[in-house]
Design a protein around this nucleic acid. Structure first.
Lengths: 387, 387
DNA sequence: TTTCTTTGTTTACTAGACAAACAAAGTTTC
DNA sequence: GAAACTTTGTTTGTCTAGTAAACAAAGAAA
């Protein structure tokens, strides 16, 4: 049985349109919504009434007249509910509490000593609990939880494979949903980061954005037409395993010459070990001092990043590519090499409008994206519910 | 002004659902449509009436009873109109006439001596005219024209760049539309081929399919979720310029080590020239005789194809990859190498369900896909028109 | 003051989906 | 072979949501 069209669908669509207009252009009047969306004034009035009943929109009262009756300005009620976003890292858990516009109202971060499931899950639940306790009085309370994890996740929110956590299959969504009784969304850290930058960072308002999360490995999140793209079966974005040297080093994935062997934080540290540097902080500090070998190393990594980005550009022709996660911190030392390499290798036609940027949300790209999942699921449901 | 929801939209959606059911499961009764789609019986009856008025569906009269009143079976009226599909090659024009189900009812092929616009366009129009003359009497006549071209095309049907034709920008859609007065769709040959295989060939019923057109260069058409995917701005699929040897040969595109430098027909002929073979036919014949150098050459090309296909698989995780265009003719000599290379290099998780196949429609993939564009545009419009 | 504008609600109407009743045309059972 | 049951597809009446047009409220301009 397919999705059939009926009146409920029409109302849902139009409610979404009205709410979207309020979100984007608030404060604005019913008349402005009508004009902007093409919906009839009466329709807008009726839908706005529903939204006010649902505590999603507030009537602020009269604004300035433009030569006739004063308009009644409307506003999105961002504080009717709160969402929790979690970035589950390899050795930390970062959590935030946001309002319905995604604005951060509280943060909580904790460091993980052990990686095993038995010790991490309780701390994760505890982190969520801490944030929940800080939700102000409001109609909806905690509307949902979004979690970004360093691994592959299937549609039902089970972690299938988390190389750096070495977990077995964990049905994380079920576990968290049963504990808190609100909808939970789980996704890969790179996808969450892509959302975070798309909604609140460097990708705002840009239709086609590719987020490259350069950490221990390389992960990617692709936003195509403002929507997160998931390949067939929900798994894709394994761009870290694009081979850029067909006859190159063997990778644990079975292929040879994978991009992440040349451009990840791991690749950087492997090459810096002989120089006596064993973490990114030390390297950044050395680069700051102007150590020539370290500068050359960063340049090499920047070039390798550029090669892979040029490939991505040739395949997807995005408007913007955003480099995030740990490697973003080396912006000052790699940017020039990245830009130069992409400019030389990407197809002329695609290069025109393309921008290569660094994550604006810094280490918060993924948490904010995770919180957005929860908000988006909640608002989607509200529009659907009609009443 | 965005797309708002109204009753017309609902009707359009439901009409599409009903028509789709008839296309897929004909002959079937109104009651079966209702059950299958979840639409109310009364709704189905009313929509079917409209479709019959529009000559898109025919009532065949009573079928066998299943223990009650006999059903009235319905059928799609494929011969209510005809579409023209054109494959504009570098040295040929291939045209077909199809009914609304895509069945080929006439063909016309001609060879091009010159490639310049001035001589090709008149011959193209002449080819369409010849096919139009063969349309049987029917309610709609020629419903549209689809054309596949060897180059980049923008949304308004202008050929931007056709390397092997060396044409300037040509507003082909406008030209053909003005001449024949029916909707014209222009797209890249690889996209058309992907559609042809998706609808009538090896990709039938498969949601995520990537068609690799290996000819002079390499082009690709991607079907994701049964829909042709076009990247940002409508251009994408330049997978031929994915670099597989970052330090490899320079390509005319500016990059180095592009896939098509190692796996296209051009690459094949370049490597076979020292052996004294200058076209694919001669090579196929030599391979048939068992010439060891030629067999080794095909194996090398097969491996190079496999490297690129493994990359594609890692990015998109498709259900099937279909190799088409000229190189498909070497299936017997390259298949083993391709399969072996992909199996070794693609991520284990993606390899499971993946199939690598050769185009079933042979040299007709692109023409049939082109005709499908015209049919699809026509049926889309009919559903919209309501009446 | 009078007239004009702008905003947002009310009223009357329309299209299309749906449920339920029903008619038509079978088959099965006794 | 009549009565009972089934299946199909139409008819009838109801409901919902969107729209146009009229209108009321409130202010600006002349």
């Amino acid at each position: 049985m397919k999705q059939t069209g009926d009146l409920a669908l029409v109302k849902k669509m139009n409610t979404a349109i009205v709410l979207d207009a309020v979100l984007r252009y608030a404060p604005l009047s019913r008349a402005q919504i009508s004009e902007r969306t093409g919906l009839n004034k009466a329709t807008v009035s009726s839908l706005v009434l529903d939204l006010i009943d649902n505590h999603l929109v507030a009537d602020l009262g009269p604004g300035a007249s433009s030569g006739g009756r004063k308009p009644n300005l409307l506003e999105f009620r961002a504080s009717s509910g709160y969402a929790v976003g979690i970035d589950l890292g390899v050795n930390y858990i970062r959590g935030i509490l946001t309002d319905l516009e995604g604005g951060v109202v509280a943060e909580h971060r904790l460091t993980l000593k052990a990686q095993n499931v038995e010790s991490v899950i309780p701390r994760l639940l505890e982190c969520i609990e801490t944030l929940r306790a800080r939700i102000p009085a409001c109609p909806y309370g905690m509307v949902g939880i979004g979690i970004g994890v360093p691994g592959l996740v299937n549609e039902s929110g089970t972690i299938l494979f988390a190389p750096n956590l070495s977990w077995p299959e964990v049905p994380l969504r079920t576990i968290v949903e049963e504990r808190f009784g609100v909808p939970v969304t789980i996704d890969n850290e790179a996808n969450a980061g892509a959302q975070g930058e798309q909604r609140y960072g460097a990708g705002r308002g840009i239709a086609n954005q590719i987020y490259v999360s350069v950490g221990i490995g390389i992960g990617t999140g692709m936003i195509l037409n403002k929507e997160l793209y998931k390949g067939a079966g929900g798994f894709s974005g394994e761009l870290g395993h694009l081979s850029i040297h067909a006859d190159g080093k063997p990778c644990r994935c079975g292929n040879q010459g994978c991009w992440e062997l040349y451009a990840s934080e791991n690749a950087l540290l492997e090459q810096s070990a002989p120089l006596g540097y064993h973490d990114l902080d030390a390297l950044l500090e050395a680069a700051g001092r102007g150590e020539p070998e370290v500068l050359a190393l960063f340049e090499r990594i920047g070039e390798a990043l550029g090669v892979g980005i040029a490939n991505i550009v040739n395949v997807f022709n995005p408007d913007v590519v955003i480099i995030g996660n740990e490697m973003r911190r080396a912006e000052a030392w790699i940017e020039e090499a990245v830009q130069r390499t992409v400019a030389r290798r990407a197809l002329a036609h695609h290069r025109g409008k393309l921008q290569v940027l660094f994550a604006e949300q810094g280490e918060k790209s993924a948490v904010r994206g995770a919180a957005y999942y929860a908000i988006s699921a909640f608002l989607g449901k509200m529009k659907g519910s009609g009443v």
